[in-house]
Design a protein around this nucleic acid. Structure first.
Length: 510
DNA sequence: GCCGTTTTCGGCCCGACTGTTTTCAGTCG
């Protein structure tokens, strides 16, 4: 039994080791791309291999990687990785998370001194040995020492919902500067990803040098990492990284597109441009060194022969193909939501204020001004029902067995799946099969909107593609939490949900 | 390591910033 995550981890560990070894960077990228593909797939790779599925059909997987994946699935081990581990000390991988140290410099340090651990590295940085290497000056060495201390902070991501207020406060702060025309927060924040690693803020201003100066004076800035003419990076008091990019009005669309990402989406767009003898960068689209687009995002997409794609779709998960076959989804909007099928009973009046036509609560109540459904939640492992209900929600917890889930599908109206984003806890079950059964039995997927418990957009997309309907609910216990439903809508949009897929966009959900 | 309707070899997205240089490599996003 091996999970997608475990396969992906082995491939990405291999990528790290190959990188330190000084292998061709494109080879390293091939391993990383494969790891990402597998980790983000709703398909169970162990099952695919056992069914004899041709892995080379997947984008970025060729003969070699296909063989490696099969080896990992059947033996639980990856001989190539084992070999590399013997060859390269493990401590070198930790060094990759040090700011300013990449594979080249790590290799340089290792070759010169045989340093294999962070402690040793610290010693060599402090005793002046590291200075002897070409390219290692005093500033870089200070940076390395600092990097060793801050190692643990690397890679932390914030929940989208937790940065929302900060992002809006920064937007307001920057908007106050005279001469600023546009402030937009790009990056994964604009793509509404469940977690964000940093904030990429784009500013159009008359004098961008002064904007940067103003930006770094934002009261919550703890540390200025870099400050250039067009790019600056700072850290806030809570360690959130903020990147500011100042651009001209003429390049705004190209810059917004570029900095919204995702990286994988951008790379695809650039490849398409290259095929048409064009070049795309953050300043515009160029043909024969002549700028042909860049003012708006729509213009950029049009210039390379594509349609506008909503930021939530830009993950290189088929949106480009969908655009080319004219099958891009028309995504659900928050305003389309007509009711919330999971709220506390004392929030009914608030729900009416929001304009909802119906709600689901944990009690039998009759109201003239709003339709109230009684929901009953049951753990799929203990499917005992002794109460009346209008609809039944099966809860799939961490310890739920596939057998119990499949049994529950025969009885329930909705299924809700456990997930804890910050604790990195995911269910390891065969979602593909479960979604197929759900479609057969007309069971809908409940998308609960709590920021830390959102179901992955990959699963939403997979469910929808199998014809499973979704119900976006807040799960609100307080008035404030009623607004959480927007997070569920965001995630559903990332899962390509259209109005036809969402139960609670209609006036009558049943 | 992947990929391909001009290619089975020779490309692979592209630019800013930093620190070290004396013109550029490494890192990062």
């Amino acid at each position: 039994m091996i999970t997608n995550k475990e396969i992906a981890d082995m491939l990405s560990q291999t990528a790290n080791l190959l990188e330190i070894k000084g292998e061709n960077p494109f080879k390293v990228r091939a391993y990383r791309n494969a790891a990402k593909l597998i980790e983000n797939s709703s398909k169970d790779f162990e099952k695919l291999v056992k069914e004899g599925f041709d892995l080379t059909k997947l984008p970025g997987i060729g003969n070699d990687l296909s063989t490696y994946i099969k080896e990992i699935v059947t033996t639980g081990k990856f001989s190539k990785l084992e070999e590399l581990k013997k060859e390269i000390p493990e401590g070198l991988i930790d060094m990759l998370s040090i700011e300013g140290l990449g594979p080249k410099r790590i290799k340089q340090i290792y070759d010169a001194f045989g340093v294999t651990s962070l402690d040793e590295l610290k010693k060599y940085a402090e005793n002046g040995e590291l200075d002897k290497l070409p390219g290692f000056g005093p500033t870089l060495i200070q940076k390395i020492l600092k990097g060793i201390k801050q190692l643990k902070k690397a890679g932390i991501r914030f929940l989208w919902a937790d940065v929302e207020d900060m992002a809006e406060d920064l937007r307001e702060y920057l908007s106050k500067f005279p001469g600023v025309e546009i402030v937009e927060i790009a990056g994964s924040y604009r793509r509404r990803k469940e977690t964000v690693g940093d904030l990429d803020i784009l500013v159009v201003a008359e004098d961008y040098m002064k904007v940067s100066e103003y930006f770094v004076k934002y009261p919550r800035v703890k540390e200025i990492h870099s400050a250039g003419l067009t790019r600056s990076t700072v850290f806030l008091d809570n360690d959130l990284q903020i990147d500011l990019r100042a651009v001209s009005r003429e390049s705004y669309g190209a810059a917004l597109h570029y900095f919204t990402g995702s990286k994988a989406h951008n790379i695809e767009i650039r490849k398409i441009a290259i095929d048409k003898d064009m070049k795309v960068n953050e300043y515009g689209v160029y043909k024969n060194d002549k700028k042909i687009a860049g003012k708006t995002e729509e213009e950029v997409y049009e210039a390379v022969g594509l349609c506008y794609m909503e930021p939530e779709l830009r993950e290189n998960r088929g949106e480009i193909e969908a655009c080319l076959n004219h099958s891009l989804p028309n995504l659900v909007n928050l305003e389309d939501i007509k009711g919330d099928l999971n709220i506390s009973v004392d929030l009914i009046d608030e729900a009416i204020k929001l304009g909802y036509k119906y709600v689901g609560v944990n009690a039998k109540i009759k109201r003239d001004d709003i339709k109230v459904y009684k929901i009953l939640e049951v753990d799929v492992n203990k499917l005992e029902i002794n109460e009346d209900y209008d609809f039944l929600v099966g809860i799939v917890n961490e310890n739920a067995t596939s057998e119990n889930i499949l049994k529950a599908i025969k009885k329930v109206d909705f299924l809700r799946f456990f997930r804890d984003i910050q604790a990195k806890k995911e269910l390891n079950i065969d979602f593909e099969t479960i979604f197929e059964e759900m479609k057969k039995e007309n069971v809908a997927l409940e998308v609960i909107s709590k920021p830390n418990n959102l179901i992955s957009e990959v699963l939403i997309k997979s469910a929808i593609s199998k014809g499973v309907k979704i119900s976006i609910v807040s799960g609100a216990k307080t008035k404030k939490e009623l607004n959480f439903i927007k997070y569920g809508v965001n995630q559903s949009r990332r899962g390509w949900a259209e109005n036809k897929d969402v139960i609670n966009v209609s006036d009558n959900p049943f």
